[in-house]
Design a protein around this nucleic acid. Structure first.
Length: 808
RNA sequence: GCGCGGGUGGUGGAAUCGGUAGACACGAGGGACUUAAAAUCCCUUGGCCAUAACGGCCGUGCGGGUUCAAGUCCCGCCCCGCGUACCA
């Protein structure tokens, strides 16, 4: 009898699948389409990790489940290749990032194949391939032409010694991570995508998404819509207007001071000779504080009096204007009216700097020191006694009549900064002309290819290495033909990954990013699988789709129908896997150790519900392998046995077969792979019990059903056993088995009998038993009779097919 | 702080509508096979008490409540994980 040896059968089936191009998807097929994809990987030098194994096994199981249901399945794969690791490796070794990337892709691809994924490799894409980023650049120019890509001065961390911009994470304790010198904030011209134009559009669709609530809430909070009002305060000294944003215009009478952010443009004009020095040093100090420091200090407020006063338009009183960094320059108007009686932050500030606190809202019940809820107005002139919700409207109307206030909606979300001063990214396709400013590179001249360079290390001038490639930088202006300069920044990698799901639909198109007819056939993605990027990628990919819809490039607004957001795979010790802890499980090792890909795949799906984090268990892997081995052995025993030449089989077994098809099918549909696997294990246990009475011809159907149901999890062993059972038609082209509900019905039912809610007996009764007969049988049961009080049953609850509860 | 998850045996986890808590698997214990081990197969396995039992009590983070019946619903807490961070 042949032993189960994955090392034999897995390569065999992998090459059959590849040679027969079994998983090539057909555009515009008449079959219903099913588009499943994982978030494409960054091909690192270290190969697939357990998270990859988990993610793409989920994808593949979905794909392999839907194909036999008659779907035209698209299961593509590609590579998210731009980014820092490849560039750093290039700086260290001098090897071109494109070369390193090519090697890593080859390794990843080989490892994916060894996992038995049913991917359509003819659609493979790579974001650093000029044929791909050509269209990323084309999309950029479309955004630019629509005003959705623009340049703006913005504050960046700047190291004066290295003369380079630093990311937030590269500033440690206010010092440069490289040279240790004190960093400063510097205003620099950067490229942005105007995602804020789509804030409402993105927000509005969130409730309709079939996505986990966790992600939907995260995106809602990230967009951070808040409705309120803008109110103008006039300064007492110079008649300047300071505009503030507030969500609580109803508390206007309690505004006892204003606070402006250190970056506020009017700060200069607010100071006088007495305050100038203090204000200057405060601003310098606060600009230097890193975000991390500001976070750590959290509630401890700092600030300085500007020297000026403003008039509260409601009370007419003179209130001081302070400068403090608890007010953020980038949000609202960068200035607020402080109402310390009804806002915790304002209260903390007022306490520290001894500023007046005026209560203007009466809390409905208990009295709190700082009440920010709804209530009734007091000390608010003509608005006294009015409900806060009502007053919010009335006070804005009243201000609006005087031309000093209006309703206003703001968002926390900022525009998306996409320029990077790095080599290994898609060059921003812009040419700067002294005459015409920024001009988009014409479509015919795309792609703007990355030039080859000798040294990938930044030159220290705050620009990307590209700026030093003289003959690349100097070009003619597309508009006037005069001398002009290329933009030398590259795009954030997230730009490349914001549209790749559409490129999979039409990956070889040389005249367009995609053909709308093909993209509209495949898109949106039916199942998008990943466990990372709650907002960034998952918001950007939505943003671009919304823009594409408005541009008429696709006919739908949302790119992802169902988001499958899975948990992390932790190490055996429950901690995160990391090289330094030495607890990393390499999924390829599991295959190499002889367990095989089928065990790996089945195990990662059996660990638990996919949305939960899990800890790896070597013993669990062994358990799953034992299960697959049992399936193998059972089939071998059947094939080797003298099969009785009749179709007799225990009726219960056929019933279990139908029940298992139903359970497993429904579980797969719900992506409940762990319970589907459990049901298959139960089925196998039943078959083992039944085989002691000998095999008949009817067993073939049992075993065929078993391997079919198993095939999404363990495709190799399933295909092998299917073939050994004598099927000429390949398993992955056979239709999924059907179940018949009438076959699942049993002649008898098990009824639980409770007395006063406690289980006292279980009865086997005919399925069509009447209520009366069931109760009679229950009362006749010895143990039940003993527990029913002498007074007899007072009341009887009967749940057909489930239980009887006798209340006595 | 706020938001979102979660808390069930020694462990991972099951449990459509409120209806037999602990499916399935791991681990553990016992047995069969074997010269022996591995592998494989079979049995037992929430705790406690009874063991003559087809028996009893307790049990889903804690405290209340609704109900014939609560892991599941309601109220009040505790703990853990993740996300977020002064957004006026």
């Amino acid at each position: 009898m042949k032993r189960y040896n994955p090392a034999d059968i897995e390569p065999k089936w992998q090459s059959i699948w590849e040679d027969q191009a079994r998983y090539i998807a057909t555009d515009n097929d008449s079959k219903p389409k099913m588009y499943v994809s994982g978030m494409f990987p960054y091909p690192s030098g270290s190969g697939l990790h357990s998270g990859h194994a988990f993610s793409y096994t989920i994808v593949d199981a979905i794909a392999r489940f839907y194909r036999p249901h008659g779907y035209n399945v698209l299961n593509p794969m590609g590579w998210d290749t731009f980014g820092l690791p490849a560039e750093n490796y290039a700086i260290k070794t001098g090897m071109a990032p494109s070369v390193v990337t090519k090697q890593n892709i080859a390794n990843f691809k080989n490892q994916f194949k060894r996992m038995g994924v049913s991917v359509d490799w003819s659609r493979e894409i790579n974001t650093s391939d000029p044929e791909y980023y050509r269209w990323t650049q084309w999309i950029f120019t479309q955004f630019f032409n629509k005003g959705l890509a623009y340049q703006k001065e913005s504050m960046q961390w700047w190291c004066p010694v290295d003369k380079t911009v630093l990311a937030n994470e590269q500033v440690e304790g206010g010092k440069c991570w490289r040279c240790g010198s004190e960093v400063e904030k510097k205003s620099m011209k950067q490229w942005f995508f105007k995602i804020t134009d789509y804030a409402d559009s993105l927000l509005k669709e969130i409730p309709n998404l079939d996505w986990p609530d966790k992600i939907k809430t995260a995106q809602t909070n990230w967009i951070g819509k808040s409705e309120g009002a803008e109110i103008d305060f006039v300064t007492a000294e110079r008649d300047d207007r300071i505009r503030v944003f507030t969500t609580r215009p109803d508390t206007l009478f309690g505004a006892t001071f204003l606070v402006v952010a250190p970056e506020h443009p009017l700060v200069r004009s607010l100071v006088n000779d007495d305050t100038r020095e203090a204000v200057d040093s405060y601003i310098t100090a606060s600009l230097k504080r890193s975000d991390i420091e500001r976070m750590a200090e959290s509630k401890e407020k700092t600030g300085v009096f500007s020297g000026s006063y403003a008039i509260n338009p409601a009370t007419g009183s003179k209130i001081p204007i302070w400068i403090a960094d608890y007010v953020l320059g980038g949000y609202g108007t960068g200035a607020i009216m402080a109402v310390p009686a009804h806002d915790e932050r304002d209260f903390a500030f007022a306490e520290k700097f001894k500023l007046p606190i005026i209560k203007v809202v009466e809390a409905p019940s208990r009295d709190e020191q700082i009440y920010h809820g709804e209530g009734t107005l007091l000390s608010s002139g003509e608005f006294d006694g009015m409900a806060t919700s009502e007053a919010r409207e009335q006070i804005v109307n009243w201000l609006e009549a005087q031309g000093v206030g209006a309703i206003k909606t703001t968002y926390k979300m900022r525009d998306w900064l996409i320029s990077r001063q790095r080599y290994w990214g898609a060059p921003i396709p812009i040419i700067h002309c002294p005459e015409h400013g920024a001009v988009a590179v014409p479509e015919a001249e795309l792609p703007v290819k990355l030039p080859n360079v000798e040294d990938y290390a930044p030159k220290g001038d705050g620009k990307s290495v590209l700026a030093s490639v003289e003959d690349w930088v100097h070009v003619d202006c597309p508009t006037c033909g005069g001398p002009a300069l290329r933009e030398t920044d590259t795009m954030d990698g997230y730009a490349c990954s914001s549209w790749y799901l559409l490129r999979y639909a039409d990956p070889k198109n040389e005249t367009a990013a995609w053909d709308p007819a093909i993209a509209n056939y495949w898109s949106p993605v039916d199942y998008y699988v990943g466990g990372d990027h709650a907002v960034a990628h998952l918001l950007y990919v939505r943003f671009w789709a919304h823009v594409f819809k408005d541009m008429g490039l696709i006919n739908h607004r949302e790119p992802v129908k169902k988001l499958v957001y899975h948990g992390y795979v932790n190490a055996e010790d429950g901690r995160k896997m990391s090289k330094s802890l030495g607890n990393v499980i390499d999924p390829l090792d599991i295959i190499d150790q002889g367990y095989g890909a089928d065990t790996l795949r089945t195990y990662v799906l059996f660990m638990g519900p996919i949305e939960l984090d899990s800890a790896w268990s070597s013993q669990g892997v062994g358990g799953v392998h034992r299960f697959l081995n049992r399936v193998w052995t059972l089939t071998q025993e059947y094939l080797a046995a003298e099969v009785a030449p009749n179709d007799d089989i225990a009726a219960s077994l056929e019933q279990i077969r139908h029940r298992t098809i139903k359970k497993v099918t429904n579980d797969y549909r719900e992506l409940s792979f762990n319970t589907a696997t459990a049901a298959l294990m139960e089925y196998v246990n039943e078959l083992y019990k039944a085989k002691t009475t000998g095999f008949t011809m009817a067993w073939r159907l049992q075993l065929e059903t078993l391997v079919q149901l198993l095939s999404p999890l363990a495709p190799h062993v399933s295909a092998e056993l299917w073939e050994q059972l004598g099927n000429d038609q390949p398993l992955d082209t056979a239709m999924w088995p059907h179940w018949d509900d009438s076959q699942i019905k049993t002649d008898t039912i098990t009824l639980a009998v409770q007395v006063n809610g406690k289980l006292r007996a279980t009865l086997e009764l005919p399925a069509d038993v009447t209520k009366e007969a069931a109760i009679e049988a229950a009362l006749a049961s010895e143990n039940v009779a003993r527990h029913v009080a002498e007074t007899g049953p007072k009341k009887t609850i009967y749940v057909p097919g489930r239980l009887i509860n006798i209340v006595s």
